[in-house]
Design a protein around this nucleic acid. Structure first.
Lengths: 345, 345
DNA sequence: ATCATCCGTGTAATCGATTCCACGGCGCAG
DNA sequence: CTGCGCCGTGGAATCGATTACACGGATGAT
């Protein structure tokens, strides 16, 4: 592969001049510029980004470490992150932590070794001394979706509190009183928060959230299945199961079906995270939609602000309730149209 | 950030010795090794992958360019690719082409600039002189899922022909005779192949595939919707719609619902690609499952074979029919269990 | 005792870019 | 005519690693 030396030789100038042309440095004669450009073209020369990075100490690459690539919520997030990054001239390397802290740390280390300019993380369950260290040493970093308390880093996330209030109000209005929740891991911020918001919302309606109605999940489908089976085995099962993410909702649906029960007649179901498929399940599922696209874009902008030395901003965007029929809403699902299906992208 | 010089100074040896310790070169005394390791530890030193890459001319990074990250099929593929690559000591940079050739080429160019060791591509619609050029210049490359005829590069893909025969036999046995297909873009190999396999399978049952029953799609949900609407507007609509990928099936389902029709009573639906949600749609959808995990692993192995100078192998794995109830199968969906839901991962 | 080997180590070249500094030539002002 | 400054250019240092080569000392064979 042609290097800058080959171009210089071909154009009859020094490498310094070639470099100046490539970086549109002003003091190059039109004549030299022309010859260099011709040589670049003739040789099909492309600058070696590795060499450039070594010299300039910047890779124009962002690292994104997410908890689970198979989760459509994170997929959508990754997509918008990549788009915004590309628009700003950055590439993105995605690492999949699969909800495992060690794997998360392994990715972070590899990304650091590659000298990425900044790190976007949605931390997995458990605390990570490594991330703390990274934040301390000044590597540009931004948390997205989830965050770690006590680490002084901008956070970009959706606030579900208001939407959860709306959900509980909706359920209450439909006559439901026994509401259960399948929580995420307590150690993730999103895990905790959603339970607290749910409990608080119930309290405003004079309802209690008994411990038996709090299932411990891990954001994976299986845990939703198990938690739901436990609910169903109770002497007095809940009327509604609210899953704190879309995969656990999927598991809950499995469990309900396995018991030969119908949604919403026998038991209702709602989920945090809206995904395109929720329109097509039988029945369509009431969910809380996060503005995934905006989250991804805001996260990248915040990170690039840190990288380029501007003051970054934490951002919190509101999530919103999307009512469908899985909790017993009398109205059927309206004809799905494009904007509805894509509401969370 | 500490460099190899700092480590050398701290350990009282030369950088060469440090490098030898780091690369477990045999001729280093235990004493020196100990001091170096201690210095590495004390300084929290991590080798700069950028500098290493410049010198060794290898990045231990693979590029993966896929057509659509939001498509669960590709997400699953990406996941298995990343896992296998990591197991072999490679990182993966994913580029999302969004089914647009220019965007695909842009990603390929960026990846090449970053001197990735090899490229895994699922080419988008349309031919790309760039990819041809890349193949010609000897950059290690492997096609996965889709490929470009005439480009001499290993191909890792699933063969759906047999599964499509099974599908048509299944439909025929259920009494269906008017079968329609929503095809992918003709310029993608998977687009073409699936139509031909379908046509051929119908022929063996003495059925013809009229042009009116071939819808032109682009692997996106919207095109599935449009094609289905067209089918439904025909004087004699088909009894079954077979979508050549999961997103177009989703669109088809939308269109069918929008017309107030029921699946499978009024019209049947089947899809190429099996995804977890097909178990949960109303009704569960009969689909052709590709061995995504095996495909991803095989693709990485083939690519690494090319990179490391071993003779690579093209791989074709069989897809298989998963019968559910969306085409009128009398039997209900069995209780979904873990292994069933994950059948395609 | 002498010489060839081998082992551990350091010096320095190298990868492909960017960029500081110096230098020659030209234009313009004094 | 002389001198100052600017412009375009090239030489060379530099980024952080790897690795060929050289070298000194110890070991073993003769």
């Amino acid at each position: 592969m042609a290097s800058i030396k080959d171009v210089a030789a071909q154009a009859g100038v020094s490498v310094a001049t070639v470099s100046r042309v490539l970086n549109s440095h002003p003091s190059v004669s039109p004549d030299a510029r022309g010859r260099v450009l011709a040589a670049v073209d003739a040789l099909g020369y492309r600058p070696n980004a590795v060499a450039r990075s070594l010299r300039t100490d910047q890779t124009r690459t962002l690292g994104l470490v997410i908890s689970d690539v198979l989760n459509p919520y994170f997929t959508a997030l990754a997509r918008s992150v990549e788009e915004e990054a590309r628009a700003l001239g950055y590439s993105v390397i995605i690492g999949n932590a699969d909800e495992r802290p060690e794997q998360q740390d392994q990715h972070v280390r590899t990304l650091l070794d590659r000298r990425i300019d900044g790190l976007l993380v949605s931390p997995a369950d458990g605390d990570s001394p490594l991330l703390l260290e990274v934040a301390r040493t000044g590597t540009p970093m931004v948390f997205v979706d989830r965050w770690m308390p006590g680490v002084d880093v901008p956070v970009v996330r959706a606030d579900g509190q208001r939407a959860i209030q709306d959900l509980v109000a909706h359920l209450y209005a439909l006559g439901h009183r026994r509401l259960a929740i399948i929580a995420g891991p307590a150690a993730t911020t999103t895990g905790d928060e959603r339970v607290e918001a749910f409990r608080e919302a119930m309290r405003t309606h004079g309802l209690a959230l008994p411990d038996a109605y709090i299932g411990q999940g891990d954001f994976q489908a299986d845990s939703g299945r198990r938690a739901t089976e436990h609910f169903l085995s109770l002497p007095e099962p809940p009327e509604i199961v609210f899953a704190a993410d879309n995969l656990m909702a999927l598991g809950a649906l499995d469990a309900i079906r396995a018991h030969g029960l119908r949604v919403p007649e026998d038991i209702g179901l709602a989920a945090f995270d809206d995904i395109p498929w929720f329109v097509h399940t039988g029945p369509p599922i009431t969910a809380i939609a996060q503005p995934t696209g905006d989250l991804g874009r805001a996260a990248v902008r915040a990170l690039v602000d840190v990288i380029e030395g501007r003051p970054p901003q934490s951002v919190t965007l509101p999530a919103r309730l999307v009512v469908r029929s899985s909790c017993g809403e009398p109205a059927g699902e309206p004809i799905p149209n494009r904007s509805d299906r894509r509401s969370n992208l």
